[in-house]
Amino acid sequence: MIWDNLGCMTIDGDSHGVSNHPRFGWQVTAARLQAGLFGFWTALVFAFLYIPIILLVVFSFNSSRLNIRWEGFSTRWYGELLGNKVLIDAFQNSLLVAFATTILATLLGTVGAWMLHRYKFPYQRALGLLIFIPMVMPEVLMGVSLLVLFVQFLHLPLGFLTLTIAHTTFCFPFVLVGVQARLQGLDPFLEEAAMDLGATPLQAFWKVIVPYLMPAIFSGALMSFTLSLDEYIVSVFTTGAQSQTLPLKVYGMAKVGLNPQLNALSSLFILVTFLFAFGSYFLTNNKKT
């Protein structure tokens, strides 16, 4: 059943005038089959992505401290989590840095990709290669060299600012590469047409190009947020006492067994994200109808 529905959705969802053209029966069937297969495959991949997450949520209700075998139902870890100020503070710090990083990296990546695409300047090709350095550089090298840069050359105190700068540095290439891909094959007349209608280059960029790039910008923002949230090695070198993020608290924990409060925290965060996502989904759809 699901198979069928998913199949219909892909074909009918976005295509216009399926019935306007004469088609051979086998072609329609084959197209449907292909869409159905893709839907089925997508379902499988989602199952793959969520298998460990289901386990993680289940174990947040486990009464045993060791995250390995099921020993009975308990909400103990949720209770303890609420009283664990250190963990909650660290999580807040993580979120704060991840949001700030996402905004900065997305801006930097989008504008950077547009500049590289739109304008010609010397050493452009070299610049295009430099973008990849933060991606390929092992985290420990990046962490230590940024630490030295911040402390000995820029004299910045380690804290939220340095941490956000460091995170932005390894996140923005992800945005930039994604936006670059979207820009390839962009109709150059799009910007020209806008300018002909009296828009300044900035207006044209903001009103025409940005909306066109939106899916790539959104993907880039998602990637930045995720990367920043989970970063350990770069963080350990570039953060201060006031900005200890969750991974810093978690990494030493394995020594005594990962605290199931972390499962509880992760489960709650996923729950909140789901509620938020579905909530905004229904809100926007209600507005439209």
Binding site: V86, V144, L147, V148, V151, Q152, L158, V236, F237, T239, G240, A241, Q242, Q244, L248, K249, Y251, G252
Partner: peptide, 21 residues
């Protein structure tokens, strides 16, 4: 008390000798 964490002696050493905090 403000607490900063590390997960290995060498991480601490690297940060300390760089004048990190």
């Amino acid at each position: 008390v403000s607490v900063e964490n590390y997960a290995s002696n060498e991480e601490m050493l690297a940060k300390l000798t760089a004048g990190g905090g």
